[in-house]
Design a protein around this nucleic acid. Structure first.
Lengths: 336, 336
DNA sequence: ACAATATTTGCAACCGGTTGCAAAATTTCA
DNA sequence: TGAAATTTTGCAACCGGTTGCAAATATTGT
């Protein structure tokens, strides 16, 4: 159909064996310069390029990496996909993108990715349960869980941040600005990132006897969810002075709700986000937020994946990167 | 290494031939119920699932679709990737994501995608020259250029909008609101979408003798580029009353610049965008814009791709979807 | 110039499946 | 019940490459 040139035809044209052609195209193989030139000439004339899938059959390596996620409504994930695809490409790996939105069962995706013999899988999500990543490990395919839950006994490789510490950091930050009545507006209750941020948040609150804290959840990491939850909160008799939102996009939704109700930020209500996505720095958003070093997380995830390709049974580790507050316009300045 | 179960082992366990196992897993094949049950039992016990890549070798179909783009800084593309990946998955196709940022030469990507024997390629970009899509056609791989340039003599399948008509529509819209001094703030000059929108814009301006029009370009479809160009324009002695920006993200950048200069929208300056991405509807953005029906464009692109898999030499067509203005807060209301 | 050594090449089997064809088994019908 | 028609099964070759091994060729040292 597609008239694709095969190795055999190149061999015939060059008047050499098929193995010779194969060797000319695999570096490190034993080929003389003369032979290589002869083969390359024939290949060029025929427009040949080797079939990566056929060769994977014998080499056992496809250079395909499953990139699975379910965050297609959080703008930070555009940055995530950009960094992942470029990083993988730069190392000669190909991302097979899997959209897990609405998928509750790891089975299907595991099966599918095994059918395509991916060399490894990157699970890029904090809203997918840890069991999802583990399912890949159980199927004996190397897996890195980026933005996953850090645990003292990691079952799979995790690269991300310390979400509990972020929760604590948020409270310290709000406390330093003199807020006495604060709240956590989390993402979906089932997301490990939400759970951990909340638990760090509450842990730190316990250290500040004068601070009153509350919490509630949005049902997704999305603008609409944040807006909806904040509208609900504003209908309650006495809302908090400042909110730590579990994500920037949630924060932006909350900001929208607050302004719609005629309140002003940061004077009436303060907002602290988490992620520091590109958009949060835009002047029309200007969100004070905790920076998550996604560039480093992704680079490190890829390096870890590459290392695992050589050493599949590598002992699992967690790579945790520190976060820090970036000061913009949605939180009052610190009063000294 | 990965202890993967092969068809041969299933055959041995079930006590049947290898072909029998193969047939049990391809629907439409001639197998008795008894045989199928026997094979399925053995397969289940062994945890077998067929190797899609190996079978592609003989069937000539990988069900892999290259999804190539270079728009990783325009939030609308998160929606685009979401819709494409889900749409492809729903039809049993797998998106192989290719990030063409910084890539100027189609050669590499064509070669790479051929090595992986993709069944087809979707080029999702209006900032990639038409030659990019054509390179795939020349390599005899089915290609659909989504968001591509509509031409009366299409060389490849194009699914998108009539960009010239959008330009005209923008002028009519601004004229109807009584603006006499308008301008087009385009994306990169090399993007066909920019060229066409500008040419439609100018064409329509010629129909309105009282209207004065100018135009300039941002160097990318991104927030920063839009903001930067608008800041530059505001330094000129007399800027326009209303701008048609070639994209929503550009518009948002422009809004940020305008407000930073202490001007108000839409009273001092009006902005009309194009795309109607999710974010444009957010209350803190609230952009008046021309809606591009991306959902329909993507559904149609996928349907076209599926059709081409059966009929690779299908006569090229252009599928054009109408756009329409969605009224929000960045343009004065029409004065009757 | 010749033997010893090192490098390059081709043969043939294999990777994990699919498929045309003919033999074997089953069903249909008289 | 038996022959004809139909369905199911297995054999063997093939898809496009890779690789261990032995034969062929080239290089080195004396």
């Amino acid at each position: 159909m597609t008239m694709v040139v095969t190795l055999k035809e190149v061999a015939e044209r060059a008047g050499v064996s098929r193995s010779a052609v194969s060797r000319a195209f695999t570096d490190g193989a034993s080929v003389s310069d003369k032979m290589r030139r002869k083969v390359e000439k024939a290949a060029r004339e025929l427009g040949y390029s080797p079939n990566a899938l056929a060769s994977s059959l014998t080499t056992g390596r496809t250079k395909l990496i499953g990139l699975v996620s379910n965050n297609f409504h959080n703008p930070i994930f555009l940055e995530v996909f950009d960094l992942f695809t470029r990083g993988l490409q730069d190392r000669g790996l190909r991302p097979l993108l899997v959209n897990l939105t609405d998928e509750t069962d790891p089975e299907n995706s595991v099966r599918m990715l095994r059918q395509y013999s991916v060399d490894g899988v990157v699970v890029a999500s904090s809203t997918l349960p840890p069991g999802f990543a583990k399912a890949f490990r159980d199927a004996r395919v190397p897996v890195v869980h980026s933005f996953g839950r850090y645990s003292s006994a990691p079952q799979v490789h995790v690269v991300g941040i310390d979400n509990m510490e972020c929760g604590r950091m948020a409270v310290r930050e709000l406390a330093a600005r003199g807020h006495k009545k604060i709240a956590f507006l989390g993402g979906p209750e089932t997301a490990t990132s939400t759970q951990d941020r909340l638990s760090g948040f509450m842990q730190e609150v316990a250290q500040h006897p004068k601070i009153k804290a509350a919490y509630s959840y949005a049902n997704a990491y999305s603008f609409e969810a944040g807006r909806h939850e904040m509208l609900r909160l504003l209908e309650q008799p006495n809302h908090a002075e400042a909110y730590f939102c579990g994500d920037d996009v949630l924060s932006i939704g909350a900001l929208s709700a607050i302004r719609e109700r005629g309140l002003s930020v940061p004077d009436d209500i303060g907002i602290l986000g988490l992620n520091d996505m590109e958009m949060s720095g835009w002047e029309n958003i200007n969100l004070t937020t905790i920076h998550q070093p996604i560039r480093q997380i992704i680079t490190s995830s890829i390096e870890l994946m590459v290392a695992m390709l050589d050493e599949p049974d590598r002992y699992p580790e967690a790579r945790i990167f520190p976060c820090s507050v970036v000061e913009r316009g949605t939180l009052k300045l610190i009063t000294k």
